[in-house]
Design a protein around this nucleic acid. Structure first.
Length: 367
DNA sequence: AACACGTGGAC
DNA sequence: TGTCCAAGTGT
């Protein structure tokens, strides 16, 4: 850790800082469904859901997930398709596949009890340095750092740290700092308080310093530079991808869906037949038809152009041209290719762009 | 280290 | 519309 950060910590009244921070948290913390007890499984699930995801988005998912998979046992024995369906719309779907994989390991290797050693916790799939620290401190009361974006922002201001928080290496600086200042009496409150402060008071733009319980301990506020911190370099823009996709029905009116590959983008979710377009060769309907024939053995009859779907991912922009049509020959169902009714469709987990696409199709056929 | 990996909301 | 995000992890 840099010497100026050490100096800053050295001259801080740690006890007073911890007391002010924790007192505020105990009084002002939000009532959240995962704060009702300290069940390590619930804490774990909530931490995975909260990765890169807003609290308000997570709440309904968490509640439903806990009703369907209330214990390690129930999640371990669940079908992956059910688990993905419960995650539908939350994004970063590998989170929940890793979670189930890790839960199965806890079930088998640790008798269903979430381990409480840093090494064992951190070895679980999908549990990185942040989540390991969060579980250890919140569920087990251990004084381990749990450094997320909030903590880096808050501490960059309080301790006047100018490291670029977009750099992976920066997290270690903040972990060292937390180790120095964490409350050993209430590590759970301390870590949660830092994050809660980041979410409610010490926000990215226009922090509410006048309401801040630790304003007197904050170097950035003291220097009047709270809006200049943290330093964060920006990310690059998304790459454009053009696709064509179709809602295809067989003679019984059943819709053809297929499972996506088990790795990569939207792994193991379901989709309508889709092809990435070769832009030099512009005939979209023809490219979609050819793709369909290659995979399912016969050409479909494409009836209509439904419209377009634009969808932005973290690193991609999809532009989907949407068609509908009919299947002209028998198609063999497999575990990865199914013909389903509109009702049965609800049982399968689809990425949001395909949910949008189906909505658009329904509106089109109604009109 | 750099990039893949989702989504909906704020401004 | 565009930009930036929000309790990160795997490779």
């Amino acid at each position: 850790m840099a010497t100026d950060i050490k100096k800053c910590i050295a001259k801080m009244d740690k006890k007073s800082f911890q007391d002010d921070l924790i007192e505020w948290f105990v009084k002002e913390q939000r009532e959240l469904p995962w704060r009702k007890d300290q069940d390590p499984y619930k804490i774990w699930v909530s931490e995975i859901m909260l990765q890169q995801t807003k609290v308000n988005t997570v709440i309904p998912y968490f509640t439903r997930f806990m009703e369907e998979f209330p214990t390690i046992e129930t999640l371990a024995s669940a079908d992956e398709d059910k688990v993905l369906k419960a995650w539908e719309g939350l994004g970063y779907y590998s989170r929940v596949r890793n979670l189930q994989s890790a839960v199965r390991e806890v079930h088998q290797r640790y008798g269903g009890k979430v381990p409480d050693s840093p090494e064992e916790i951190a070895s679980l799939k999908g549990v990185g340095p942040y989540t390991a620290g969060a579980i250890l401190s919140i569920a087990y009361g251990k004084p381990e750092p749990a450094v997320d974006g909030n903590v880096m922002r808050v501490l960059s201001r309080i301790l006047l740290i100018s490291e670029d928080i977009a750099r992976p290496a920066s997290r270690k600086i903040f972990e060292s700092a937390v180790k120095e200042i964490i409350s050993h009496d209430h590590p759970s409150f301390f870590n949660q308080a830092l994050m809660e402060l980041g979410a409610l008071i010490c926000t990215p733009t226009s922090p509410s310093c006048l309401l801040c319980p630790v304003r007197d301990h904050c170097q950035a506020f003291h220097e009047g530079v709270q809006k200049e911190l943290p330093i964060k370099t920006k990310k690059k823009k998304q790459k454009n991808v053009q696709l064509a996709a179709g809602i295809f029905k067989d003679s019984q009116g059943k819709i053809l869906i297929r499972k996506r590959p088990e790795t990569g983008l939207l792994a193991n979710l379901w989709e309508f037949p889709t092809v990435e377009l070769n832009l030099e060769f512009k005939r979209q309907r023809e490219q979609l038809s050819d793709h369909f024939k290659d995979l399912y053995g016969s050409f479909p009859k494409i009836n209509d152009t439904i419209g377009e779907i634009d969808h932005v991912f973290s690193h991609l922009k999809w532009n989907i041209h949407v068609f509908c049509g009919n299947i002209q020959a028998e198609i063999q169902e497999t575990p990865y290719v199914k013909l389903v009714t509109e009702t049965e469709l609800q049982e399968y987990a689809f990425p949001v762009p395909y949910l949008k696409m189906f909505q658009q199709y329904l509106e089109f056929t109604k009109a």
